[in-house]
Design a protein around this nucleic acid. Structure first.
Lengths: 172, 172
DNA sequence: TATTGTTATACTCTATAACTATA
DNA sequence: TATAGTTATAGAGTATAACAATA
């Protein structure tokens, strides 16, 4: 029985027409991102470790004692989403919450010893996966791609704040 | 009360460290794609019209009488997902299913008259949104971005077929 | 009152499996 | 027996709301 899946799109089948889709940046970004996501577990092995969960570990590792609201803000998560992501790693003994002396409401997030080890391995696996994703590109192409994507993210993020959902964030 | 949302990430807050995240193509792709997705309804207006649902209308418009399994293959959807997406537009009188003479199992998908009109407007709105997303880029940068993204999608798609989920697709 | 964090809850999306009708 | 399409169902993921503890 054949597997039903949306993870192997096969873009650009010459038998069909795609209209303006292939000339839309948003369409290409989504396809590339979905491809990255769908091949992620092949390199990482553990299917429960998603790019988001990896990024949680990475950011906590870089910012020991980070508040959960700060983690949420950095990664664009809601508070409950941050709670759940931390719970995931806490259940695996990779993250711990510690009360802060200065503010009793805050429970700073820290890597555990085994969390450090897991992160160290994970960083290498993720970097390898990322290299594989872009192995068809030259160094110059890759550097240009990163610069361009950062421009889109930075430039459009500030615009989004003024015109989109950010408007509601600022509104009382 | 402030709105809880993950749609306005605010990447690169200088107060924090991001480790290797900003140098990962996958991370940048996801952020750019999420930004595109989160600002999409601002241009389109109707929140129920997602990029995916638009692409369904676009592909059917370009390939009248398309089979539903073909639509699914083109857009990387499962059969049930294709059914639901077509149902959405059928309920809005934009798409119809018609029995095919040559094969009684097939119900080809077609645009209705009002579907043509909706698509024509939608194409313009989507193109405008896409232009806004990349308005910080020069023409050369945009062209390079598209070429590079297509390389990633095409190059990696064929590799994915050989090593990833495609393996299970081919396996009995 | 406002903020940190958790829990409760619901909604969307998408996956698999099972069913139908045709071939 | 295989394929096109639908329906049923369940699992992630993520959203809001409400709550507890602290400021």
């Amino acid at each position: 029985m054949a597997r039903q899946s949306g993870s192997d799109p096969g873009l650009f089948d010459r038998s069909f027409r795609y209209g303006q889709l292939p000339s839309l940046t948003g369409f290409l970004l989504r396809r590339a991102s979905l491809l990255d996501f769908s091949t992620f577990p092949d390199t990482i092995g553990d299917r429960s470790i998603t790019p988001l969960r990896y990024s949680v570990l990475e950011v906590v590792g870089e910012n020991p004692g980070l508040q959960q609201v700060q983690l949420a803000a950095i990664l664009g998560l809601t508070k409950p989403a941050a709670t759940l992501a931390i719970n995931f790693w806490e259940a695996r003994n990779c993250l711990t919450r510690r009360k802060t002396a200065s503010d009793g409401r805050v429970r700073g997030v820290h890597l555990t010893g085994s969390g450090e080890e897991v992160l160290a391995e994970l960083r290498q696996d993720v970097a390898r996966h990322d290299t594989e994703l872009t192995e068809c590109l030259s160094e110059v192409e890759l550097a240009n791609l990163h610069n361009t994507l950062r421009k889109i993210i930075e430039g459009e993020t500030s615009k989004a704040r003024a015109t989109s959902s950010g408007e509601r964030d600022l509104a009382k």
